[in-house]
Design a protein around this nucleic acid. Structure first.
Length: 450
RNA sequence: GUGAUUAUAGCUCAGUUGGUUAGAGCGCUGGAUUGUGAUUCCAGAGGUCGCCGGUUCAAAUCCGGUUAGUCACCCCA
């Protein structure tokens, strides 16, 4: 049979795994430094935990897991007869693959509320699954790196998350623009424009501004049934750049003013803190139609510093007033952000920012001529490993050519060749692959080289 | 859910208006070289042209269907 893997999934070669771990390690270390703790949740959740949390589109993109056993015998007869898949699902599938890390986290918080200390600061780096049609940079299985704090409304956490973004991308060497806005400001705009009940329509349209331009947004707003006077008001406010001007424009909306105050408070926390990346208040940032209620964030590659990189957002998040009420626990506010690890990988690759020397790589390969020197080499190998040097021994004393070729394929920087001569003198042939130079060194001298 | 596009050697791909035995590069195996990789030279192995059907004297090539991949839209990371 011809081997293959499911659509939208990927295998990772050793180099790719090392590079992915490089990204995850940086992110993880920063999370830990800021006091966040790791949790993990199962790949599968009860389907009832997942359905209805991501909208109609989200339900369609959920991977459902077929029940074990004689599931058809227990299937909904009527739905089966009508060939109604949607109606049939509950009776044949009770589990699904997690769609994101936020909903499982909400479930987790409710289940362990008595064991957690609030504010609870958690991070989670795990794969999620979506039955979307795959395309460039989008997969059915991909990793999310989420960091959230729940149980506090303090805006100092918003400031802290900006610092986390800043520090991670500084360490990765990517210049980014961290954009910040506030849902309450968007609500204020809708109020001032006289269309408070069409807030969602307005946000969805504004969110596309980068992509479709002001003309496109105008068209989209019109299509969504928003009148010309309201559109004019919206456009006028979207052009505003500074907080004081915005305060004036939103004077009629207490919610809008609160949003402005919140942004100012976050900026205030960050005053005097030296950011490596650009923090930019962007009134046009909207972040889709998700559950955010306060500050929202999005991170993009700085196109001034990296003009050739064409990449969507590489991170985003925001504050939500109530994470857990769908699971019966009220008044649990939180704020969190996510890192788009898959996209960050692509950016680092394009900018050639991955470290050249791979920490996990093999450093030395032993090569032997015959059975006796192979046994001798095995003991030398143990000494190198005991000294903490990544070392390996070719498994058989076959032709040198074959062993050397393996060393080359493994891209090992040094080879130690052992034969009669070396065993008798204790002076091993230590070869530097890059230039082909060979030296006669004792084990002690070799270990001292690393 | 909508649309476009691709499928030929292990991999990446050529293959003319349909016409002899389907090619290249890389990789693989052996040799030049029984103590040396990457470099050089020589030789060799390796293909049911995704699958099913149709047109034709003749199909990798044209037509229909089908499966799978890729890309874009919707949405999203």
């Amino acid at each position: 049979m011809k081997p293959s893997i499911p659509k939208g999934t990927r295998d990772f070669l050793p180099q790719q795994v090392n590079r992915r771990n490089y990204i995850f390690d940086i992110i993880r270390r920063v999370f830990i430094k800021y006091g966040y703790q790791a949790i993990e949740t199962p790949v599968m959740e009860n389907l009832s935990t997942l359905t209805g949390k991501y909208g109609e589109e989200g339900d369609r993109l959920l991977f459902k897991v077929l029940n074990n056993g004689d599931f058809l015998n227990k299937a909904d007869e009527a739905a089966l007869r009508e060939r109604d898949s949607t109606k049939l699902i509950p009776s044949i599938s009770k589990r699904g693959l997690r769609y994101d890390l936020t909903v499982p986290f909400a479930r987790f918080v409710v289940m362990y509320q008595n064991d957690l200390a609030f504010p609870f600061k958690r991070y989670q780096i795990q794969p999620v699954w979506r039955a979307d049609r795959p395309q460039k940079g989008r997969y059915q299985e991909f990793y999310q790196c989420d960091v959230d704090v729940v149980g506090s409304e303090s805006l100092s956490y918003e400031a802290e998350l900006v610092q986390i973004y800043d520090e991670v991308f500084a360490q990765l060497g990517i210049k980014t623009v961290i954009r910040i806005n506030n849902r309450k400001i968007l609500a204020g705009i809708a109020e001032v424009a006289g269309i408070p009940e069409q807030l969602v329509d307005m946000t969805v349209a504004i969110d596309k501004l980068d992509k479709i331009g002001i003309e496109g947004v105008r068209k989209e707003l019109t299509e969504r049934g928003i009148g010309a006077p309201a559109i004019a008001t919206i456009e006028k406010i979207l052009a505003i750049q500074t907080l004081p001007e915005l305060e004036q424009a939103l004077a009629a909306s207490p919610t809008g003013l609160l949003g402005v105050t919140e942004i100012a408070a976050v900026m205030n926390y960050l005053e005097g803190y030296q950011l490596t990346n650009t923090l930019h208040f962007d009134i046009t940032l909207a972040r889709g139609l998700s559950y955010y209620t306060g500050c929202i964030f999005e991170v993009n590659v700085d196109t001034t510093a990296h003009p050739d990189v064409k990449m969507g957002s590489i991170g985003g998040g925001g504050r939500y007033a109530d994470l857990t009420s769908v699971f019966g626990m009220r008044d649990m506010p939180g704020v969190g952000v996510s890192f788009g690890a898959e996209r960050i990988y692509d950016v680092l690759e394009e900018l050639q920012l991955f470290p050249a020397q791979d920490a996990a790589a093999l450093q030395v390969l032993f090569i032997a001529f015959d059975a006796a020197s192979h046994r001798y080499a095995f003991r030398c190998l143990n000494q190198l490993r005991a000294a903490g040097i990544n070392a390996d021994l070719y498994p058989d004393p076959v032709k040198l050519k074959k062993q050397m070729k393996y060393a080359d394929d493994r891209q090992v920087p040094y080879v130690i060749i052992i034969g009669d001569q070396e065993m008798n003198t204790g002076q091993l042939s230590f070869k530097t692959m890059a230039n082909g130079e060979q030296e006669q060194l004792t084990m002690a001298e070799i270990i001292a080289r690393f």
